[in-house]
Design a binder for these strands. Structure first.
Lengths: 219, 219
DNA sequence: CGAATTATTGAAACATGTCAAGGATCGTGG
DNA sequence: CCACGATCCTTGACATGTTTCAATAATTCG
């Protein structure tokens, strides 16, 4: 009928969560040290149905968390970048896929049990919940321009540079994150360009020219 | 209809627990007993910016969790019914509103600190996160018919009766939960009626005639 | 019973999706 | 280093689902 997801998935999915920066050192300190694994572009870090347990720290690159409908439409619920932790799930098995975007280095954090660990994880989980609810507002109540503005503002806040954004993911991933099509993403980028709000040095590198205008659009 | 202030034992409400069924008794056992408060239709149980801390158990009635955009658009991120627990937030202050729908009895659960409490809360938070992600898929990738079907299927699974649904909330709340307008909700109800998938005894009472068809639509 | 609220239905406008073509970019091998 | 194919991105024209605006009907409540 309607809304078609851009990306037809071959198979995998992952977990969920967002990280709380403050708690990350605590978690890492309590984890048993593990080597960093490299995941090639598109490869699954974990998948739906797989047993959950460890957390994952992104050392470099990016990760997407996604879920599919029966007919292959895809929703990306979150992106994770260097320094961020993901992999939360209900104790038991994963309900989503976690996949590398353009190649990523991932460190596994095998958590010891204990009160401190539980507190740190709770804090992370609650933070993720808050982010998830914010994203529901974007998905349910914002138009395409507002969605993309919100996405860009989020990226500026999570990355080092205030002005320059290097998009790790292709348009189709942005589309599936925002609940639109990749064509719409492309068109909105065009509008933001002609409005002099952003400038594009290349398809993957965005320069923020007017962060106030962008913030206003984002809500 | 109203079960006024009669405390329902956890075991008795376990059947319609939306959150992790197993953990609710644990939480209640660890909470210091508090009286049940009544919140009139539309009144706030807590609001944005307010300090978070306790959890809340719905004794009767229903609750909506919502957030507004700057220009007044609203997104409801979750409903909670009798026997369910809500009030999770990042430690600190609430980022959303919790409001009574049509009058609700709420018991405050003031949690002790400790490992068991943290584990139980973590479990609840992770479950909530999984639900949030599922709802993102609905908001971002499903059309109006699929959205409403998913909503009805969810209700049948959370309420006692398999066939009869008593909608606690008005059409506008359903609309704001599903990210559509109330007119669209009404029109989709009409389609489901003419398709013989549901029947409406009144605007608030829905009879499921073909749960398989509904489940198929929901995905 | 009447007023206020809530729900339904219709017609038209609009945003976004769909389909299609062309252009840019990237990586690889000659 | 260039050429080539594959992938990714952009843009246009048109179709369509949903919103918007408006009017009527049903329900609730005092």
């Amino acid at each position: 009928m309607l809304i078609q997801s851009n990306y037809r998935h071959p198979a995998a999915v992952a977990a969920n969560m967002h990280f709380q920066v403050d708690e990350t050192p605590t978690l890492i300190a309590q984890a048993r040290p593990c080597a960093v694994s490299f995941y090639a572009d598109g490869s699954a870090i974990y998948g739906q149905g797989q047993e959950a347990g460890p957390l994952y720290l992104v050392e470099f690159g990016a990760v997407r968390i996604c879920r599919l409908t029966a007919d292959g439409r895809r929703q990306i619920s979150a992106f994770y970048f260097a320094g961020e932790v993901f992999g939360f799930e209900s104790a038991g098995e994963h309900h989503f896929f976690a996949e590398s975007i353009g190649g990523a280095g991932i460190r596994v954090l095998r958590m010891a049990h204990g009160e401190h660990t539980a507190d740190a994880m709770l804090s992370l989980a609650l933070h993720g919940l808050t982010r998830a609810q914010q994203h529901m507002l974007v998905l349910g109540r914002q138009n395409a321009v507002e969605k993309l503005a919100a996405f860009l503002v989020d990226l500026t806040q999570r990355q080092e540079s205030e002005k320059l954004i290097n998009l790790a993911m292709p348009r189709v991933d942005i589309a599936d994150y925002l609940g639109v099509t990749l064509e719409t993403v492309s068109r909105v980028f065009g509008k933001l360009k002609t409005s002099r709000i952003i400038r594009m040095n290349s398809a993957k590198q965005i320069e923020i020219l007017d962060i106030d205008a962008l913030t206003d659009l984002a809500d």
